[in-house]
Amino acid sequence: MRYIEPHAHMVSRTTSDYEAMRLAGCEAVCEPAFWAGFDRSSADGFYDYFCQLTDYEPKRAAKFGLPHFCWLCINPKESEDMVLAREVLALIPGFLERPNVLGIGEIGLNKNTRNELAILEEHIDLAARFNQLILVHTPHLEDKLKGTKLILDLLQADSRIQPGRVIIDHVEEHTVSLVLDAGFWAGITLYPESKATPARAVDMVERAGMQNIWLNCACDWGRSEPLAVPQTALEMRRRGHSAKAVDDLIYGNPLRFLSQSPRFRIE
């Protein structure tokens, strides 16, 4: 089995996780910028984080034979402070030429506020101006449906944005069709309690089709499972899906989306 982990917060994980992912067949790992679990006190904290994502973490991953890529932004949980958010937005162009940067992400909404929407719009503009791929985080739990609709409205209002270059992550049964029907890619995140389980993820894929969907573990500092993607591959095999279908979903699909960035190259 081979797979690409398109969404994992490896700065929060141990070297044992890198080793386990590699042993399970991981061929590349991609890390969106996100909330650290606490608010950073200044834009300097983000500068250091972007250095970690573009310099230190790829070296750490390379020790386990894993190519490491990243996405840059200020996450929606810290976007409520618009002064801070704009300082961080101003830092991003200086990092976009670094060799492992794939695009702008994970941007999106958290509590669906006006400030979060304004900063999301500025991220979308940044991505359009610099011709970057976009990775979108949709809100948690009761906020997901409303947030997904607001995000879709905003993306569709910008004529420069091509839906095929945007992945909208953390879809569930009530949002997956909204995303796919609008022409965007959809990400299914596998979590022990929230988001989707392997069984529900396979249900969604069976009903929506495998085109333009990726699976990810989004492992971070909370309860999460770095091997959730290969575990879901086993779930598919238990249901009788072919090895080729599994490979198409967990390797071919992320490869197809990510290869739209000239920086995403794996052996």
Partner: peptide, 10 residues
Amino acid sequence: PLLSAPGKGA
């Protein structure tokens, strides 16, 4: 959209 965030969590 909400006028402001009532906290971070859901």
